[in-house]
């Protein structure tokens, strides 16, 4: 019955809705339908991960390369797991100890990877926009695994996926992102995606760690920015704490981690200001006892570990969606 085309649909997405992008570089230009397709596919992938045999062979013959110019444990491991769970070959390349260190340009590196058979390249790079450059110079699909302070689209998609599975549609929901917003690609990608989804996004942190321009101002929309966490939390459906880098203290942006925690740490008392049952999220890795108290991290409302699990499903979804189109 392969010629039998389904005419009906159970999800409300038109049957012609499919993935046509070569690359996934950010969340800012994703259409509503693209986001829905990713989330729907991720739902299926999460089910696959729960089976007695939690691996399929769909991407047999597909090669995924993780090209990391920055240290990473969880993002890289998550992509590697996602690729292997779909039957792809996964090759990990780190900038240190490779030709990258010997001065090879990014363009030459991705072209070399393409020549040895990479279909998809997951890239993390300290420079904003580097994946855009790579994407323009290779026919391999590029997935942005984090570029400088710019974007981390797969994190934003897994965060949305996690929110959806707990609180449903995020339209009109109040999502507070707290911490070092200015230097955070997670905050940016989340803000863009959540705003497009109709959520009320509040960015909160010390004045020196807030953006100087509201993310999203480019399109005329914007999100609330505040230094007052207690006020921001009022009526919040989701609270997302970001990782606090110790280097910010050295750069003179905050007096000390202790002072930061005093104003912006998520503790039981603060979380109680949010709506009952509000989700507590963190993209990881957490500094123990800085961004979130251990008590809150371990509480029922915390979905921090679930974010990690969902990360594999969302990345499987993206690898799956991008592999078919990537073989043109």
């Amino acid at each position: 019955m392969t010629s039998q085309q389904p005419t009906g649909d159970m999800t409300g997405l038109p049957p012609e809705n499919t993935w046509r992008r070569k690359d996934l570089l950010n969340t800012d230009t994703l259409t509503h339908q693209e986001v829905e397709l990713v989330l729907e596919t991720a739902e299926a992938m999460r089910e696959v991960r729960g089976r007695p045999m939690n691996k399929v062979a769909t991407l047999r013959g597909t090669t995924v390369v993780t090209l990391f110019y920055e240290q990473s444990t969880r993002t890289r491991a998550s992509f590697e797991m996602a690729g292997k769970a779909l039957g792809a070959d996964v090759i990990n390349i780190s900038a240190s100890g490779s030709s990258v260190e010997k001065g090879e340009s990014l363009i030459d590196t991705v072209r070399t990877l393409e020549s040895i058979g990479a279909d998809l390249v997951v890239m993390r790079h300290p420079e904003a926009g580097a994946p855009y450059l790579a994407a323009r110079h290779t026919s391999a699909s590029i997935i942005n695994g984090g570029d400088g302070q710019h974007a981390h689209p797969t994190q934003a998609l897994l965060d949305l996926f996690t929110m959806r599975s707990h609180i449903g549609d995020v339209t009109g929901k109040r999502v507070v992102i707290v911490g070092d917003i200015r230097h955070s690609r997670v905050a940016r990608s989340n803000a863009w995606l959540l705003m497009a989804q109709g959520a009320e996004v509040v960015l909160c942190g010390p004045r020196t760690l807030l953006p100087r321009t509201t993310p999203g101002a480019h399109e005329g929309s914007g999100c609330e920015m505040t230094t007052d966490l207690d006020a921001a939390l009022k009526g919040a459906d989701v609270v997302m704490a970001l990782r606090m880098q110790k280097e910010r203290q050295q750069a003179g942006l905050i007096p000390s981690l202790r002072e930061y925690a005093r104003g912006y740490q998520l503790n039981d008392e603060r979380v109680a200001r949010a709506k009952a049952g509000a989700l507590v999220m963190h993209p990881g890795p957490m500094n123990a006892g800085v961004e979130v108290t251990t008590s809150v991290a371990n509480s029922a409302v915390s979905v921090i570990e679930e974010q990690v699990t969902n990360g594999v499903a969302v990345r499987m979804a993206l690898l799956y969606l991008m592999s078919a189109g990537g073989r043109r």
């Binding site: 392969t2 739902e43 299926a44 089910e47 592999s323 078919a324 189109g325």
Partner: peptide, 14 residues
């Protein structure tokens, strides 16, 4: 026929 397809077929949860 996944390898031959231009675009990925929809996947729904089993």
């Amino acid at each position: 026929d996944y390898q031959q397809r231009e675009t990925p077929p929809r996947v729904r949860p089993s």
